[in-house]
Design a protein around this nucleic acid. Sequence first.
RNA 1: GCGCUCAUAGCUCAGCUGGAUAGAGCAACGGACUUCUAAUCCGUAGGUCGGAGGUUCGAAUCCUCCUGGGCGUGCCA
Length: 661
Amino acid sequence: MHVPQLLQQRFMDALSEFTDQADQYAAMIRATSDPKHGDYQANCAMPLAKHLNDGRNPREVASMLVARLELDDLCEPPEIAGPGFINLKLKESFLTTTLQQILGDERCGITQVKTDKSIVIDFSSPNVAKPMHVGHIRSTVIGDSLARTLGFLGYPIVTDNHLGDWGTQFGIIIYGYKHFGDEATVAADPVTELAKLYRIVNQLVEYQKAIKSLPRLRQAIEDAKQAVSLARIDVENADSKQQKKAKKAVSATERRLLGAEANLASAEEKISNIDQDPDLGPRAKEHDSIDTDVLEETAKLHRGDEVNLSLWNRFLPHCKDEINRMYNRLDIHFDHTLGESFYHPMLAKVTSKLEQLGLASDSDGALCVFLPEFDAPMIVRKQDGAYLYATTDLATLEYRLNEFNPAEILYVVDTRQSEHFDKLFAVADHFGLKDVKLVHVNFGTVLGEDGRPMKTRSGSLIGLESLLNDAVERAKEVVCNPERLSGFTPPMETEEQQHIAEVIGIGAIKFADLSHHRTSDYRFNLDKMVALEGNTSAYVQYSYARMQKILQNANVNDEDVAALVREHGLEFTHIAERNLVLQLLKFEEALHNVHKDYAPNHLVDYLLDTAKAYSRFNDNCHVIKAESQAIRSTRLAIVVQCKQTLAKGLNLLGIDVVSRM
RNA sequence: GCGCUCAUAGCUCAGCUGGAUAGAGCAACGGACUUCUAAUCCGUAGGUCGGAGGUUCGAAUCCUCCUGGGCGUGCCA
């Protein structure tokens, strides 16, 4: 049920007498911000009066529209207010009949979109062999939620995890295996051992890079110092008009200096940490060209070196096992996992096609696509002949167009890569790929409490697994403490407690992430997201549990309630009932808003509003002690529908529910 | 330098293609429990929507400039 759409159709009929752009004006219907203006408002009279320009003011235009509107079956008589708003209040009979129609419907009354064309969603895309960390949350959670939501709306969905399975990280573990690995240990527990090898080699590589960067970092400090003093001289010489600008330049250079000093300090710390490590210190001395050697291992792999290729073939499944463990825990699954390696054989064809089309040309030995709207070209082949991710992305795009018949392809990727996608889409345009909508579903950074990108104390990224463990542990402390559990019958066994903690904890992380608009950065605060009061998943999940309990106490199931409604009918006796039912009928709007902006936070807002409306209902409208059978049936129906909606909504966010907590 | 992006209540954040008195949660204060699990509800207080112009009947929203952050910027992804 999409109420605004229903109203729009009626408005179209009335509007078509006045304009041939009726759809545009009909679209100006939205929910009111204040219930005293009714449930929905049409804002089309003001712009239409201007468009008609026949001397009639907006209020007159509004009343002409109202006279031609046929809304009797849906609404109370419309009211014209303010400069020309048309306020619409839904009839109680409309609300009750609609509720009865959708009661018990698994789709919550949502219309199924009919289309053959798919939506391809590219998300998560971690580098295998590298532990997943906090930076992977957003793409994974947002992408999964979009896949679920758009899929539920009826679009055929193709999810694809574009794994980084062909890059330097494999050079790292191959090097690690050759130099530090042990056949038997790797065979016994490949996942753990490979992760360990990755960690060791990566640290040694970082060490070498840090050492080599020292002169450059020191020079940067000198340069910055000089820039500061030059800028200060400028201030002295500047006339009053230029003072401000000159001072700004000083503070800019001072910031640059501070940054340069911080970079040096962090490099020096990295170095001294390794030097002092009894295990890594000596190894670092021994493998002093490890940074370039690792790249050579990668290059050999790409050239088809037999040893490295066989190691890659042997290690890759274990790396996938590792990330799949995480996906299983998050309840996230993909239709395809076509990583970079899958496209490797197609890259030469991509570049030659670009050359044939005259799009790519040689520049300094690299193959580049120059685009008029960008300063820097898109490089598709390096001087050394290696391909880049731009090349892979083009091959991927071509493959998807051929295989998946997409109407849209969504790339759920960090906003810092937006320029890359701008270029990619521009080149795709020149390729002649016009009838597919390519969208970079960009998102911001997860920040720590200090407002800086989230890191551990030692400066490394926080592992995803430990993050989930922390959340589950916190959830258990708050939800499954003895004080709360004492009242439950039957008592809650350890197993159920653990399950609840997992559902609440993981849900909290997903919900917190999805509750922010994807394009903004947000501060990660575990205590707040797992807290049980406020705008949290637990609040919604708890509402659900309360509803389950009511139905249990009333000793009815969904079918029983439907039968009761058929027998006793539906009637509202409290405003909280009407408000909640109206809210339940807005589910479809919320889902379409998610699609429109590719922004799951609209669904989160909707669920919080719904849970809040339920809390008010719950406070004011006792179900079991209701005064009459009709009132009781009505309230049971509301509970059933609300429970269904919240569970479905959470499910579309990738969040589970529990029947008691 | 150029490009992108952000600035909303003490804090964390919403605010849909321009719509009526800018919202929520947390924190603060005051109420409501013989409870269908109070993890709740009701109320109070709190904002020159970074600043200045402009477009409009109407601007947090669109445009320009300014201030202050963040990010990106030819061979990593």
